[in-house]
Write a protein that binds this DNA or RNA. Structure first.
Lengths: 229, 229
DNA sequence: AGCGATCATCTGATATAACGTATAACCTGC
DNA sequence: GCAGGTTATACGTTATATCAGATGATCGCT
């Protein structure tokens, strides 16, 4: 093969419409653009994304299979709602999974990853100061998963994403209160210190505190607006 | 609405062709009826189940979204294969998740559940004696999840099922060796004793031993047949 | 006014057809 | 006999049509 041909990159797989719809809905859920319990119809999704029913349907039911959406009676699809029992359950799962990821990641993070995490934490703080809570949510996700992916456990990452997706619709419910609290900042600072020292125990402790803190805020927010259960 | 009508459950999704196809494939995967790495085409599934492409496709890709199958290049779908790193990862996840479920279940199991578990364990032993390994696999699944469901954590149950599905194709690879080993029987006996005493620590310990035992057998089997990676 | 039945509309489920691409079997020229 | 190109087949993707069940509104009756 000629040298010139070797430099040509393989064709990027033209993402399918169903795949793009899936990603689009996924990020919309994470960004809290849907209200908890909101019904998503196949036709509405198809119309919004200007695709036909088939890929829209596939995206919706794949998200159901993934746990990011829930299916109701008669094949209807809804954004999941959370009651306190569900929050408690997801929190306990997160403690187990993210604790595992944190311990492993602390041992495997390279300097680039540590620097990325530090930078993302700064971005969170800056976005919070500017009250750009959409950016806070996005950077908070990136901050956590930049750390977790260093554990090199892709199945685990996927499961943790599933947990985050289930609570995604509530994230903008708890801002701005969440961001402004000193505790949240302190937890993230502790996480950064722990990864800088590559200390598995300290990192797991800091992550656990962050998870439990978020759970408390979320439970309080839901108690305040019980119609969202 | 009358009380009787309130108890009627709405039509569930698994009464659709896509839902039934999903269940059918799911149990087939668990039973190890597909070889690791085997390619599943939409048309083949549709023909086998005598349905059209649409529900067959939906079932396949929902299983991919669920993590029970994997998607390759050009939208092809395969039964997942495991290498040793993947086995290690899934084992560590299982230890975290099933450990959590076991601790919780030990505190919540009622007498009926304990009796069910005891009965299922007897069925495993009987099926093993008759060398009916399909029944061993099925009852082993039921035994574990009869316990886990007592934790009343449905999200957690779904995640644990995902772990089991990923290894499902390899289960009949490790029989009959797996069933015949004394250690496996001892682990299950320890599990039964722990739930009878409703002892969370003992149950978690026993479950962990069972998981680690299964992982060792599985890793050994894969080393013996490296072409299945 | 309240209640119930009828009908239009919405929505999900499925089949089928059309299209583009990948795979492999085949063929041709050397 | 074999390398390279060509055709045929298989496959995934998507759009559309059709059907059935659910939903909701309108109208008539009491």
């Amino acid at each position: 093969m000629s040298r010139a041909l070797q430099r040509i990159k393989p064709l990027e797989r033209n993402e399918t419409l169903a795949g793009r719809a899936h990603d689009e809905l996924r990020t919309a859920i994470m960004a809290g653009r849907f209200r908890p319990g909101e019904k998503l119809t196949i036709r509405a999704v198809a119309a919004a994304l200007e695709i036909s029913l088939t890929p829209a349907r596939e995206a919706l039911f794949n998200l159901v299979a993934e746990g990011a959406l829930e299916s109701g009676p008669n094949g209807s699809v809804h954004v999941p709602t959370l009651d306190e029992a569900r929050i408690t359950e997801i929190t306990r799962i997160r403690l187990a999974l993210e604790g595992l990821a944190a311990r492993e990641a602390a041992l495997l993070m390279d300097d680039a990853a540590i620097e990325d995490a530090r930078r993302l934490n700064d971005l969170i703080i800056k976005a919070d100061r500017k009250q750009d809570y959409a950016a806070v949510i996005r950077h908070n996700w990136q901050f956590h998963f930049r750390i977790y992916e260093c554990a090199r456990m892709p199945v685990l990452v996927r499961m943790m994403e599933g947990c985050w997706l289930k609570t995604g619709a509530y994230l903008n419910l708890i801002y701005p209160e969440f961001g402004r609290l000193e505790d949240g900042m302190r937890n993230h600072a502790a996480i950064v210190r722990a990864i800088e020292r590559r200390d598995p125990v300290a990192l797991e402790t800091a992550i656990r505190r962050d998870i439990e803190f978020a759970a408390r805020i979320l439970a309080k927010a839901i108690r305040a607006e019980p119609e969202l259960q």
